[in-house]
Computed example of a mutant assay.
Amino acid sequence: MTPTTHSAPVPEVWLPLRADEIEGLPEGLTYHFYDGAQEYPADPADCAYYVVPYMKGLDAAVRPLPLMRGVQVVQTLSAGIDHVEPGLAQLPAGVRLCNAKGVHEASTAELTLALILASLRGFPGFVHGQDDEEWRSGFYPALADKSVLIVGYGSIGAAIEDRLAPFECARVARVARSARTTARGPVHAIDDLPALLPEADVVVLATPLNPATQGLAGADFLAAMRDGALLVNVARGPVVDTEALLAELASGRLHAALDVTDPEPLPSGHPLWHAPNVLITPHVGGSTSAFLPRAKRLIAGQLTRFAAGRPLENVVRTTG
């Protein structure tokens, strides 16, 4: 009697994009489309690789996780992982969490430069002047000869410095969780901030959100910034203490350009909308035409490595 053979189950993958829209996906995997809808495309218990829906909110990201008893990889399409962290404790041990390093650097760095230049050169006032048919000429600050401090010197922070290079800044200083040396110069530890903040004309926040960075730009941080300095936040809203920032903006001492806010979305009637000297964009650092091509390349590359049993890139945490 011929013994019965059982083939191994085909690993199932949940994608927020349709599989036929992504070139280079490996064979040997079963693909399901899930973009955060209430109805799941398959049994979550059978999902081996979960690509989290992008910009669909906390519920869409986390809701399936407690049911994914066989998941091996959770892949975000964002640089930050804070939106999936509430669900990680419900996962089995050994699940790899990967972020989207390489996807958002270009777009976020572009927006950072746009926010800096628009704020320094007075673009919000020009837009209001155009609305009122007023010719608001005069002298405005330039980025040239300014000192810039980048707080959070990962891949996005480095991409921001790449784009600062042609603007003839007097100095670019870098801060990360711990000190190190790069080809461009030293990266200071976060403990050096009190000495660095008073020297900067522009302070850019590009840190991940975690317990160490929540409220980092609080009253003491802001008070250490020099008069007239510009704070740019392309990190996460809670990295800045909103009430402390409002006090500095109301006094006229600081300026701010914010792609992220706390709370977010910023509700109607919130005082930050009409605070003086602030430019607000609605968290659009990564949501540009550059996103999809890079996201698709990341997904295809990661799943090719997964299917072949090779090490994944961008692993930022393993559960358990």
Rank of each mutant, 00 (worst) to 15 (best):
G102W: 04
L254N: 06
P166V: 10
H83Q: 14
T76V: 15
A114G: 14
E243R: 14
V151D: 05
H270V: 02
M1L: 11
E21P: 01
A229T: 02
V95T: 09
V278E: 03
M68F: 06
L193D: 08
Q302D: 13
R121E: 11
D220I: 06
A257I: 04
D131M: 13
I160L: 08
R310H: 14
E85K: 14
N99T: 06
R69Y: 02
P166A: 03
S289N: 12
V260K: 01
T112M: 07
G57C: 11
S287G: 09
G122V: 09
A229W: 00
G70F: 05
E134P: 00
L143V: 15
P293G: 10
P263G: 03
L113A: 07
E133V: 12
T181E: 15
H104P: 01
H32A: 05
P86C: 12
D35V: 05
F221R: 03
A250T: 14
L254D: 06
M225Q: 11
V84C: 04
A307I: 05
E85V: 15
N314M: 11
Q130H: 13
L298S: 08
A295T: 04
Q214C: 12
L58H: 14
I190N: 03
D227A: 13
R236N: 02
E12V: 14
M225V: 03
V62E: 11
R63C: 10
G102A: 10
V239L: 08
A223Y: 02
S178H: 15
G80T: 00
F167P: 02
S178K: 14
V316A: 07
E23Q: 13
P16Q: 11
L249G: 03
D35N: 15
R310E: 15
A42M: 01
C98G: 07
V51H: 03
F139Y: 12
P238Q: 06
P311N: 11
E313P: 04
G301Y: 02
A8D: 14
A183Q: 12
E12G: 10
G218M: 11
V73L: 09
Q72L: 12
D131V: 13
L113P: 03
Y140N: 08
E23T: 12
L193G: 04
P41D: 09
S287Y: 09
P92F: 07
I22A: 10
A109P: 01
G252P: 12
A19G: 08
G94I: 12
V187K: 02
V73Y: 08
A173R: 14
G125P: 02
L117C: 11
M225L: 09
C98W: 06
D43I: 05
A256N: 02
Y140W: 12
R63G: 09
F139V: 14
F139S: 11
V172C: 04
A170G: 13
P44Y: 08
P53W: 04
H83I: 13
P44F: 07
L266Q: 07
V234M: 02
V74S: 04
L88W: 04
G237F: 01
V127I: 15
S137I: 10
Q302C: 05
Y140C: 08
L303D: 07
R317D: 09
A89E: 15
L231F: 05
A195S: 13
H274C: 06
D131H: 15
V204E: 00
T304V: 00
V73H: 01
G125H: 07
P194E: 07
M1P: 07
G36M: 07
E243T: 14
Y153K: 02
G252L: 04
H283N: 08
R171F: 05
D191H: 03
